[in-house]
Design a binder for these strands. Sequence first.
DNA 1: TTGATTGCAAACCATTTGCAGAAGC
DNA 2: GCTTCTGCAAATGGTTTGCAATCAA
Lengths: 141, 141
Amino acid sequence: MYHDHVPFKAKGLKATKQRHEIVEIIAHADYPLSAEEIYLELVKRGISLNLSTVYRTIETLVAKQVLGKVNLDNELKNRFELINQEQHHHHLICLSCNQIIAIEHCPLKSYENQIANKHHFTITNHKLDLYGYCEKCEAKV
Amino acid sequence: MYHDHVPFKAKGLKATKQRHEIVEIIAHADYPLSAEEIYLELVKRGISLNLSTVYRTIETLVAKQVLGKVNLDNELKNRFELINQEQHHHHLICLSCNQIIAIEHCPLKSYENQIANKHHFTITNHKLDLYGYCEKCEAKV
DNA sequence: TTGATTGCAAACCATTTGCAGAAGC
DNA sequence: GCTTCTGCAAATGGTTTGCAATCAA
């Protein structure tokens, strides 16, 4: 019935209609979404569910490492994207049109180790976001 | 009377007592502060001013590039730090005790160029935050 | 059947705003 | 004196929570 983006049961979660729908939306977006955006998209599709369910689902799925939080500047705060099989990546953000592009290659492995040693930290993850202007917006200025 | 952290007049701003005090607090903190923390520190020092003044001052100073906004993943509120003469840096955050350490060295110059070329972007800045556990917190687990 | 999940409404918290008075230049 | 800035109190917007009903297993 639903494309199986997330093995809910294997994660100890009940497979509810709401969870499937929410994951469905996030899985098909080509950039990270906010709770509000997810909710509005659900409404647009005629699916009735509560905003707090969206928040609770997001929270649960972040805890289960199904979703990752993306916290950008501008109005682009608190957005979420599927982690699933895709690898770790970074974001390139246009400060004019706010488009968000995922960048696959990460150059920070050895830097992480270096910092970990120097500061006696166990580093579990990092966030790198690059800000600037895309070709189109740059041309407009 | 006040150590001159910021040339208010040169920025087209009135040099008020409140602004001096707020900048004073931020300048002497060794990690980025939230509006609430700035306010509480002012109260502790016996300086009376309003929370909304803190917010308005921060907003003004961010617009004037005097302060930089730091938006971390593990909390909802915003934090701020002086930009002035210090160089670009990154943050190392302990997810257990929430301490924030500034890291001076930035390894991303050539990576930035590489991404700029590949995606036809003009990159103006970037944010890198490393998350993990400090020695003490790691030991507790 | 039973515990997890949801809907709803109310609560919460960080931040913003309107307005009148105070202060800088 | 004129304009900016501040204090106060109220409003806002995003997110969280308590509780009773509903649903998946």
